[in-house]
Design a protein around this nucleic acid. Structure first.
Lengths: 221, 221
DNA sequence: GTTTGTGAAGTATTTCACAGCC
DNA sequence: GGCTGTGAAATACTTCACAAAC
């Protein structure tokens, strides 16, 4: 039995709330409580966890510390992950400065850019490297994850290069959908897409002529 | 027939590739081509579009310009959306400086922070306002969307305030899951969650003892 | 010949509901 | 009494496959 991808996608959320509960000092938590915190049903949480084992105790719930530990193991968060950043423009610098990665075990250990004015510069303790150094450095440092923060027009090309260096996971900040061979995973970060999927529902309430028509068609029996 | 939420979530991606195709000068596109670009099946694209109407021509495909127009109408992107930003720390400033929102019709028209050192300051043409001004300004400017860029500990409280001001859609950059009443939509932007859902698969290849065990249990039966 | 739009079929995912355990 | 773990039932979503349109 394969673990569904949606389930894997939810595990990090469980990790996040469990850490908050631990910080708060809670020792035990029930699927009901987790469900309230995450706005999902208790049954879904129990079912998700059941793909990986039996972590709870009937009548009590789950031990926060031990469930957290188990999930960290399952997600392979019990180690350090070395990451390459490509693109050190405005966005890339913000990513380098983001303090949220390191405490979670994600360390940016190399930065690349093909702009000659950026190369050689020191940023957050790293020397910006030319793209031509990517194969050597990615191999030497055994990097498996990359963050792409280049302009949309260059993203596909950059991802191709990363893939040929053996990178298997890409976090893509460029507002384009990139194609990768089977076995290479991409997650996109695009705030505009997120906003656009919410305006759909706002539009329904406000309603332009065109929009109302569309919703009505969508709502036909 | 309700439009499934997953479908709405994909429409912005269609908009994005259609714009790229238009820039490239393409006039027509088939569901097959769109599918190749987005790594999904042609049938899914046709089915998704069919929730809203009939936009294609048999034998030819879809007109790029007109499909784009239709989708923009459906998603209510044929107007300007005014947005409030809460939190003008490191992250909030990066968001204010991000050039990707305005061309898509998303305009940040107010910025709030409860740090007295930030209030009154001019940033990107806006004066940072104290939180106490939120009800007045959100109402006056008829703001329906907010971007939250405050520390995790304050996010729930900020969202509560936004909701009580009538905000119906929130883009949450804080690494916590916030609870909202029915009818208020939240999308989270958390690069760490995205990375963590990819390490699961990387771990399977590398394999710590604990992780291999977990995957094996997951793969039982 | 090509490609759409769509019911029907096939999968996948979520929820139910309850036996079993604390 | 409370809560987990889980088959079975219910829903949701995707893919198939083909008639109709060009």
């Amino acid at each position: 039995m394969e673990v569904p991808e949606v389930v894997v996608g939810r595990l990090p959320q469980y990790v996040r709330v469990l850490r908050d509960l631990q910080k708060k000092g809670d020792r035990l938590v029930s699927s009901k409580e987790l469900g309230d915190l995450l706005q999902m049903t208790p049954a879904q949480i129990r079912k998700d966890l059941s793909y990986f084992g039996r972590f709870g105790k009937q009548g009590r719930g789950y031990s926060v510390a031990s469930l957290l530990d188990q999930l960290k193991g399952i997600l392979a968060l019990d180690r350090e992950w070395r990451i390459a950043l490509v693109g050190v423009g405005r966005l890339g610098r913000a990513i380098l400065g983001y303090p949220g990665f390191a405490p979670e075990g994600f360390q940016i250990v190399a930065a690349f850019d093909d702009d000659q004015r950026q190369v050689g510069q020191a940023l957050a303790g790293l020397i910006v490297q030319p793209m031509s150094e990517m194969p050597r450095i990615v191999t030497e440092k055994d990097i498996r994850i990359a963050i792409v923060a280049v302009p949309a027009a260059q993203a596909q090309n950059v991802v191709n290069q990363l893939v040929s260096c053996g990178v298997k996971s890409v976090l893509n900040y460029a507002p384009v959908s990139v194609q990768t061979p089977e076995g290479v995973r991409v997650r996109g970060i695009d705030p505009v897409l997120s906003l656009q999927s919410m305006t759909y529902y706002l539009g329904a309430e406000l309603g332009s002529a065109q929009q109302k028509r569309a919703h009505r068609i969508g709502a036909r029996a």
